[in-house]
């Protein structure tokens, strides 16, 4: 799982990779506009700046989940004129401003498709395969 940041026009701004080990996590925007990610697995809260820079990690008691994380759930969808929702026609996550609705632009294709676990493994396997093929063909000559 990853977190991506979009502006009010649906434009991709940044991506946040909290922890490659996965597990359940929750996100909250803190009052200074930074992003906080609470990991249930590690009982930690990681704080990121809006450009994706990691700022700090703090540990929390597992019986004492931060209260503000409970408040910011799927119901927090609106700020000013911008409303974020699933478009019923395209079933894509979209931003609505008045009567216009626009899907969020695809962000970070490289991060999503190449730099994930299987992408790295696949690229490595492809490289080894090419080396084997070229070695075997040279032996035949």
């Amino acid at each position: 799982d990853r977190v991506q940041l979009y502006d009010c026009n649906g434009k991709f701004k940044a991506a946040f990779q909290p922890d490659s080990a996965g597990g359940v996590f929750k996100i909250a925007a803190s009052p200074d506009q930074s992003l906080e990610i609470y990991s249930v697995r590690t009982n930690t809260v990681d704080t990121f700046a809006l450009d994706g820079t990691f700022l700090r990690r703090r540990s929390v008691d597992d019986r004492d989940m931060p209260f503000d994380f409970l408040k910011s759930g799927p119901s927090v969808k609106k700020a000013g004129l911008c409303e974020f929702e699933i478009d019923p026609i395209s079933s894509q996550f979209s931003v609505r401003k008045g009567t216009s609705i626009k899907p969020l632009e695809p962000g970070d294709w490289i991060l999503e498709n190449l730099l994930n676990y299987w992408g790295i493994g696949g690229t490595g396997a492809l490289g080894i395969g090419l080396m084997l093929v070229s070695t075997l063909r040279r032996d035949k000559l």
Binding site: V3, F16, F25, I27, A29, P74, A79
Partner: peptide
């Protein structure tokens, strides 16, 4: 999960 900031940016967990 979706979190909208006061400035109108949105964090989307995917």
């Amino acid at each position: 999960q979706v979190v909208v900031t006061e400035s109108g940016d949105v964090f989307v967990k995917i």
